[in-house]
Amino acid sequence: MGLATAAKTDAIAGSSRKHERGHFLRLGLVRLTDYAILIFIGGVSSVPLIWMTSTSLKETGREFVFPPQIIPDPIVWLNYRDVWSVTHMHQFGLNSILVAVFATIGTVLTCSLVAFGFARIDFPAKNSLFFLLISTLMLPGIITLVPTFVLFRLMGLINNPLALIVPWWFGGGAFGAAFYVFLMRQFMLQLPRELDEAALADGATYFRIYWNIILPLSGPALATSAIFSILHHWNDFLAPLIFINSERWRTMALALRFFLEDETSHGAGGGRWNLLMASAVLMLIPILVLFFSLQKYFIRGIAFTGLAGR
């Protein structure tokens, strides 16, 4: 019934505005400038996609000539076929999806538990433990790569896709996942305390409070965490580089790096840019679709909060 509630609040808002005709007109003008601003920024933001798509359709060796061409001549659609076969996109893409989905489920589930503990329950050493988790974000991962590698080898996680998933099922204790705990904690701290107190008085357990009250009200935080997590795993090349050896479990983000070239190579910009951009476009599209479709969860969040908060 989230939509109905939202519609209702909307209706209230609408009726208060419709009193004056002048107000209404002014609103129209405001909308127009709003759209102008949105279209301008939207246009600027689409530059990379346009540029990437244009480059991805150019002939090898003529990706960048002067004067620049927006619409390439000739248009080389074959680049996409090449990139699909060269990078085994069907397989690497599936690997990326698998890692992103399973790691994200783990992240959202376990980090929301931990965040609930930090946000809604008081216990000794809470702040120190929270700071301990946050501090894992401050040490550059480069210097812990070797011992992590040794640890993973002892656990049998080298060249094993679980290396990219399992650590994310531990509520922010490993790698950068404390980010999500912090994020969810911030949102959970925002919910009125009376919710828990009333439920506790009714004899509810903490788990019920977490599951039935706080989680449903944390829609935006969960959706944001999910999209960040998916994006992180989708674009992360370091973990797949270090922990995976074989092509069987290579991910798209790592495959993209194969198009880069050394700075000292005499071309001052070697690499197969057209193919790099084609694979970047292929990587971008699923994320955009996902982001577009996840948005309703942001919106639903308002309805929940509006209902429960006041």
Binding site: L145, V150, R153, I158, F237, L241, L254, R257, L260
Partner: peptide, 18 residues
């Protein structure tokens, strides 16, 4: 392994016993 990342990959693995 990619050109830009090969050293990091090989050195970490060698140091880590693979």
């Amino acid at each position: 392994f990619p050109f830009a990342d090969f050293a990091a990959k090989l050195l970490t693995s060698l140091a880590g016993g693979v």
